[in-house]
């Protein structure tokens, strides 16, 4: 190592040490002036380049070393400045970078729309297509074709809103679930098919913290020869992992729905405690999240599909999932549109 190189090393080390000691922006600036100023210690070293006795080969080498040292010091200066700016008082000159950024004008979709979006996208990734249907429905689509018998209690005024014509009950009703869209779609399409259906549904529940006469559902239907109960489970488990993360598990319990057989209810491993048991899941470790099953043969019969057709269907409540995801304890928040509520859901990257 030549004498020049040793000197360069020691100047650099000295400068870095001084920088380390600098406690504010002014001290950092002083270090800069002392080493990189016009007559700075490191700047002076560049004059050696003008030494006529230097061979061009050596000159090149020295130049590189000088530039490297300078760059190293500059980087260290910048780093120290950034480091200090968090605590440093603003200087009157220049930009106070600690000021809040100017926010662009921001809007958001409603949290219910955001959750619907997430649910749909995780099914789209599995080849499901999104379709829609009307909210005012006829009894055939909402009940008859779904194997719900004529005297079933869910058809009564306690459970379903009917439309009036001059005070008299009509055959039109506000759909009590999104399942009629299954019927509409199968009426006009032949299998194989895979659809998901988001939408608003209605039930005559008085409004309180956990009930509302209107809410949203996402419904799914897959029809294809050879579909199994295992396919239903696999599809929903894959969806749950996409939706709630890799650790999410689903537990299937036998249940009853008139339009599926076998039927199941699926519980999601509690997203707050990973299934260990907490206040949200009532110490159970599981959260009830959706209903599903293999499509009942009577449903296929109602839409004139061939006997022996196989398929599965599922449905879930969007408000419930949104409430779980965001720790919302009052369903009324969704329809009050209080800015302080809505502003908390910027949407964004998932």
């Amino acid at each position: 190592m030549s004498q020049r190189e040793v000197q360069l090393e020691s100047i650099t080390a000295e400068a870095l040490a001084a920088l380390e000691q600098a406690k504010d922006a002014a001290a950092v600036e002083a270090v800069r002036v002392l080493y990189l100023g016009r007559q700075g210690k490191l700047t002076e070293q560049f004059s050696a380049m003008k030494d006529p006795g230097l061979a061009s080969e050596e000159k090149g080498k020295l130049g590189k070393q000088l530039n490297a040292a300078k760059q190293r010091l500059e980087e260290a200066l910048a780093a120290r400045r950034t480091n200090l700016s968090g605590s440093a008082p603003a200087k009157s000159s220049g930009i106070d970078a600690t000021l809040p950024g100017y926010p662009p004008s921001i809007g958001r979709s409603h949290p219910i729309s955001q959750v619907i979006d997430r649910i749909l996208n995780n099914f789209r990734a599995q080849g499901f297509s999104v379709v829609q249907g009307p909210e005012i429905e006829v009894e055939r689509n909402n009940f008859d074709a779904l194997n719900i018998p004529p005297d079933h209690p869910s058809r009564e005024g306690f459970d379903t809103f009917y439309m009036a014509d001059h005070g008299k009950r009509t055959g039109y009703l506000l759909r009590s679930h999104t399942s009629p869209v299954q019927i509409r779609f199968m009426d006009t399409h032949k299998p194989p098919l895979r659809i998901v259906v988001p939408g608003r549904v209605y039930r005559p529940d008085a409004v309180d913290a956990t009930h509302c006469f209107q809410f949203h559902q996402v419904e799914g239907l897959a029809v294809c020869p050879g579909l199994t109960f295992g396919d239903l489970k696999g599809t929903l488990i894959a969806w749950a992992r996409g939706m709630f993360g890799e650790k999410a598990r689903l537990r299937f319990r036998p249940h009853y729905f008139p339009f599926t057989e076998p039927s199941a209810e699926a519980d999601l491993s509690c997203i707050f405690c990973d299934g260990k048991g907490c206040r949200v899941c009532g110490q159970k470790g599981w959260l009830e999240i959706l209903g599903c099953g293999m499509v009942h043969p009577e449903v296929f019969k109602a839409v004139n599909y061939l006997p022996g057709t196989t398929g599965f269907a599922f449905g879930m409540g969007v408000e419930r999932i949104a409430m779980l995801l965001h720790g919302i304890e009052d369903i009324r928040y969704f329809y009050e549109n209080d800015a302080r509520f809505l502003e908390q859901f910027p949407g964004g990257i998932r």
Binding site: G127, F229, F252, P254, P262
Partner: peptide, 24 residues
Amino acid sequence: EDLNEEIARLWGYDRCPATLPPLP
């Protein structure tokens, strides 16, 4: 199909394997 459900629930829903449906 009603009997399928009886068999499945006594066999255990959890013991029915989860599969992914083939692309039709």
